[in-house]
Structure formats: structure tokens, C-alpha cells
């Protein structure tokens, strides 16, 4: 096990270095040099230009620059935003809980609906339920979620007036930030209606962000279940008179879970990509919206730092999934 873990970790390191190289290269392959970009349309006079060049170290050889960059990264220094002048690291972690909260809710929705849907479809293979569920899943899987979000806004907010259109909580409420998770903070504040407001703001973004993972999980659960259901031990379990429920949910699902867990873990990247669109549409103040806004504002240190942090996060999740997978399934470890 330890050997397996070490080998996974060994592949992690070069990937990490590669990711830092890409984010390092990003600001340097942009058309025009960073100082001119930073100065924007106002321009900058030559003396000040030289000074800034030195201050940011752009006059040094690339390899030295990279060294300084990576030392900075390892110390949590990702530079400062051109716009807010705040450290990128601080901004990222201030906004991250919003994205995390939304992602957890979306994933919860996806698993809570996707797993049973997949099991029901597999058990009723070829029948009406199977076809109905899998057609719906395919529609969900093909959904342009930015359009789905707009449709939901038209129906739920426009016609029915049920849910708010943007933000995390109604502006009527103000309370200090404790955890950064609006659901928890609104409860802690003890203000009447704050929690309900936070929940109602979460509903639409959760549905939008959860749609694709939900479809993927349902499809994956179905195919994993189908594979398991044809195994001999399932026949044995049926033959010895276990209830269909016991066979399907205890014997089969437990063994079908392995590929499903992998899919759940690997959809973190999809979730973050989805968060970019979802957060932009619902003005959700998370890292997806932050990245898009920064790209438009040409706030390059933020784009650079955000890119690196997001990639590292995806890598850590993938590594964890890999290790967990080896833990659950000894066959993988041996390879």
C-alpha cells in the first residue's frame, strides 16, 4: 500500500511542476509585456517602466524568474491583484467557501438522485423506467447548462416568482462572516429568515451545477450495476432467498460503487468548469466568477494564481481518488 501511495505521489510531483510552468508561462506569453498591460491605456513613462521592470523582476533571466516564482508559490505568495492590490492567495481563499458550498450542494444533489436513478434503471433493464430515466439522463448530460440556468430563471423566478435570481443572500441581511459558508453563517447569526433566504438563493445554482454530474452518475451507476448484477454471487444471493431490495442495494450496489466513486471524484474538474458558468449567470461570488471577471479585467496575476490553485486542487482530489481507489480495490495496487 505504501509503495502504491509513493508511486502515485511520484507522478504527482512532475505534474505539479508542469502546472507551475504553465501558469508561470501564462503571463509571459501574453501579447505585450506585463508592465505595459498593467499600466493599461494610460501608458507608463520609460523611467517608471524600468523601475517597475526591476521591481517585478522581469529584467532577470527566465530561469531566475521561474525560481523566484516557484519559491513564492511554495510560500503561498502568488502576487497581488492589479485591480484590488490584495494578495491573490487571500482573495482566493476568501471566495473559495462560496464555490465549495455550491459544489457540495450540487454534488449532494447529484449523488442523492443519481445513485437511486441508476440502480432503478439497472434493475428494470429495458423496461419503461429504464428507458425514461436514461433518456432523461442523456438530456441532462447534453445540456448546455448556461441555457438551462436561463430557462430556470425564466420559469422559477420570472413566471412563478419562487426563487431569487442572483447572489448568495438577500441584501436585507447582514451578519459577520464566520465560516464563509452562507448556510452555516446565516444559522449562526440567529436572524429570522436569513437561513431561508440563503437556501432559496442556493436552489437554482445547485440544480444547474448538479445537472451534468447527476446525469453522469446515473449513467455510470446503471452500467456498473448491470455488470455486477450478472455476477454469480448475485445469483447465489437471489437463490438463497434474499429480498430483491437486499440483493440490489446491499450486495450489488456496494460492489458497483467502486467505478461510481471514481466518477464522483473525477467530476471535480467538471464541477469547477461548470462553476465558471453557473457563478457568472447567478452572480455567485465564488472563484469561477472571480476568474472570469479577472480575465475580462486583464487582472493577470489573479488569472495566473487562480489557474495554478484550481489545477493543484483538481490534482489533489484526483490523487486522493487514486489512493482511495487503491485502498478499496487491491487489484489496482498490484499493477
Amino acid at each position: 500500500m505504501l509503495k502504491y501511495f509513493a508511486s502515485r505521489l511520484l507522478t504527482f510531483l512532475p505534474t505539479f511542476i508542469g502546472v507551475t510552468l504553465i501558469s508561470f508561462a501564462f503571463i509571459r506569453v501574453l501579447p505585450g509585456d506585463p508592465i505595459t498591460v498593467m499600466a493599461g491605456e494610460r501608458g507608463v513613462d520609460p523611467a517608471r517602466y524600468q523601475e517597475l521592470l526591476q521591481q517585478f523582476g522581469f529584467d532577470q533571466p527566465l530561469i531566475v524568474q521561474y525560481w523566484h516564482y516557484i519559491v513564492g508559490v511554495l510560500h503561498g505568495d502568488l502576487g497581488k491583484s492589479f485591480v484590488t492590490k490584495k494578495p491573490v492567495w487571500d482573495e482566493f481563499f476568501a471566495l473559495f467557501p462560496a464555490t465549495l458550498e455550491l459544489s457540495i450542494c450540487a454534488m449532494f444533489l447529484a449523488v442523492a438522485l443519481g445513485l437511486p436513478a441508476g440502480v432503478i434503471a439497472a434493475v428494470n433493464r429495458g423496461k419503461f423506467f429504464d428507458r425514461a430515466l436514461m433518456s432523461t439522463a442523456l438530456v441532462g448530460y447534453s445540456m448546455p447548462i448556461f441555457w438551462w440556468a436561463l430557462l430556470l430563471i425564466i420559469v422559477m423566478s420570472g413566471w412563478l416568482g419562487l426563487t431569487p435570481v442572483s447572489g448568495r443572500i438577500s441584501l436585507l441581511f447582514y451578519f459577520p462572516r464566520v465560516t464563509g459558508f452562507m448556510l452555516i453563517d446565516s444559522l449562526l447569526s440567529g436572524q429570522k429568515g436569513a437561513f431561508t433566504s440563503a437556501v432559496s438563493h442556493l436552489i437554482l445554482p445547485t440544480i444547474v451545477l448538479g445537472t451534468i454530474p447527476l446525469a453522469v452518475i446515473a449513467r455510470q451507476t446503471r452500467s456498473a450495476m448491470l455488470e455486477v448484477l450478472s455476477e454469480d454471487y448475485i445469483r447465489t444471493a437471489r437463490a438463497k432467498g434474499l429480498s430483491p431490495y437486499g440483493v440490489n442495494f446491499v450486495h450489488a450496489l456496494r460492489n458497483a460503487m467502486i467505478p461510481v466513486i471514481t466518477v464522483i471524484g473525477l467530476s471535480v474538474g467538471t464541477l469547477l468548469a461548470g462553476a465558471i458558468l453557473t457563478e457568472t449567470i447567478f452572480s455567485w461570488p465564488g472563484i469561477g466568477k472571480w476568474m472570469v471577471d479577472s480575465i475580462f479585467r486583464r487582472d493577470y496575476p489573479v488569472v495566473q494564481g487562480g489557474l495554478l490553485l484550481i489545477a493543484v486542487m483538481v490534482m489533489i482530489v484526483n490523487l486522493t481518488v487514486d489512493v482511495l481507489y487503491g485502498f478499496i480495490n487491491p487489484k489496482i495496487r498490484k499493477r
Binding site: V19, A273, I276, L307, A311
Partner: peptide, 17 residues
């Protein structure tokens, strides 16, 4: 490894950048 590096970025984010 190079492919792993590209795959470490969410595709839409990398495309955006």
C-alpha cells in the same frame, strides 16, 4: 505527464485562458 498536466486544468477554464 504533459497530457496529465493539461488534464489537471478544468477544460473550460483552460480554454478561457
Amino acid at each position: 505527464r504533459v497530457m496529465d498536466i493539461i488534464l489537471a486544468f478544468p477544460s473550460l477554464l483552460l480554454a478561457l485562458v
